[in-house]
């Protein structure tokens, strides 16, 4: 079947198997391999991307379901001049990543948390990231990074590509 999906602002139409997961579509078809897959059970959140303005786990969405959607991945966050998104910048400043495997999903989930709640508490950040697992950081610096990013204002909860929440 054919799907037409806009990823990081670029629309493309591809022939895919109906069972192709969005995570594999991004990695294999679009060649965007920042998005990682860390489990089989929608548990770890490493594959989190933004679809139509909402953070989702791309291992549990079919590419077919994303037909016509706007998708943003980690690769789509920094400006053309290399300027980091506030969440990216905060993860670096606060040492919010070590091995980096959870990071793409963690960054996208954090944007989702800040979209919902621009000024969260420590506890609210933890609850907002309950679907994202990290084995390296003990979450301490990830939480700090999200709190730091929140200080950047509304941009921390937005992605560069215009996305409408399709509610």
């Amino acid at each position: 079947m054919q799907v037409s999906i806009t990823v990081n602002g670029e629309q493309r139409t591809d022939e895919v198997e109906p069972r192709l997961l969005l995570a594999h579509y991004l990695r294999e078809v679009r060649g965007l391999r920042a998005t990682n897959i860390g489990c089989d059970s929608t548990s770890c959140g490493a594959c989190t991307v933004i679809v139509d303005g909402l953070s989702v786990k791309s291992c549990t969405v079919l590419a077919a379901q994303a037909d016509g959607a706007q998708v943003t991945t980690l690769e789509g966050l920094a400006g053309a001049d290399g300027e980091l998104h506030p969440v990216q910048a905060a993860f670096r400043a606060e040492h919010g990543l070590q091995c980096g495997f959870c990071t793409p999903g963690m960054v996208m989930a954090a944007i989702g948390v800040l979209a919902d709640n621009p000024d969260p508490t420590d506890r609210e950040v933890r609850e907002g990231l309950e679907g994202n697992l990290c084995r390296c950081t003990g979450y301490h610096n990830i939480v700090r990074a999200v709190l730091t990013a929140a200080q950047a204002g509304p941009a921390a909860g937005q992605v560069p590509q215009a996305q409408e929440v399709q509610a």
Binding site: A34, L74, Q88, R92, A93, G100, T103
Partner: peptide, 21 residues
């Protein structure tokens, strides 16, 4: 000192074995 590894990890993502091209 903030890590020199991070800018790539945060923008392009690290390149793990399954990411190799």
């Amino acid at each position: 000192v903030v890590r020199t590894e991070d800018p790539l990890f945060l923008t392009r993502g690290a390149v793990y074995t399954d990411d190799l091209t």
